[in-house]
Amino acid sequence: MDLLALTVAYNDNDLLSDDDELIVQYLETPFFSRRVYNGSDLYSTLRDDEFLKRFRLSKRSATFLLDKIIHNFPNTFNRNAVSPMNQLLCTLRYYATGSQLTACGDVIGAHESTACRILHRVTHAIASLYSEFIKMPVTVDEQNNVVAKFYDIAKFPRCIGAIDCTHIKILSPGGDYAEIYRNRKGYFSINTQCICSANLLFLDVVARWHGSVHDANIWDNCAQKRNFVQGVYNEKLLVGDSGYSQTRYMMTPLPENTPSTRGEKLYQESQIRTRNVIERTFGIWKRRFPILSKGINVKLRRVPGIIVATAVLHNIAILQKDSEPPTDEDIPHIHDIPIAIPTNSRTLSRSIAGNIERTLLINEYFARL
Rank of each mutant, 00 (worst) to 15 (best):
Y151I: 04
E132F: 09
F150P: 00
H124S: 13
I118K: 03
A125G: 00
Y151E: 05
E112L: 15
F156H: 07
S113A: 10
Y151N: 06
G161H: 01
V122A: 04
I108Q: 13
T123Y: 03
E142P: 07
A110V: 15
D106I: 02
T139Y: 04
P157L: 11
D164Q: 05
Y130M: 04
S131Y: 09
S113T: 15
I126Y: 00
K135A: 11
N144T: 05
S172G: 13
D141L: 12
P137W: 00
A115C: 08
A154H: 08
L171V: 13
G161D: 01
V147W: 01
P173G: 13
T166S: 15
T139G: 08
L119C: 10
A154G: 05
I168N: 07
L129C: 05
E132Q: 14
S113L: 07
E112W: 11
D164N: 11
S113C: 12
F156C: 13
I160P: 00
S113H: 11
D141S: 15
S131M: 03
H167R: 10
C165M: 05
T166F: 10
S128D: 13
G109L: 09
K169M: 10
T114C: 09
S113D: 09
C165G: 09
A115Q: 05
L171P: 02
I168M: 12
I118P: 04
A127Y: 01
Y151L: 09
I160D: 00
S113V: 09
I160A: 01
S131N: 13
D164K: 00
K135R: 15
A148R: 12
C116T: 13
D152G: 12
F156P: 07
K149C: 06
R121D: 08
H167Q: 15
I170W: 07
P157C: 12
K169P: 05
E142D: 11
K135S: 14
I108N: 06
L119N: 08
S131D: 14
G105W: 04
T114L: 07
F150C: 09
V122M: 03
H120M: 14
I168E: 08
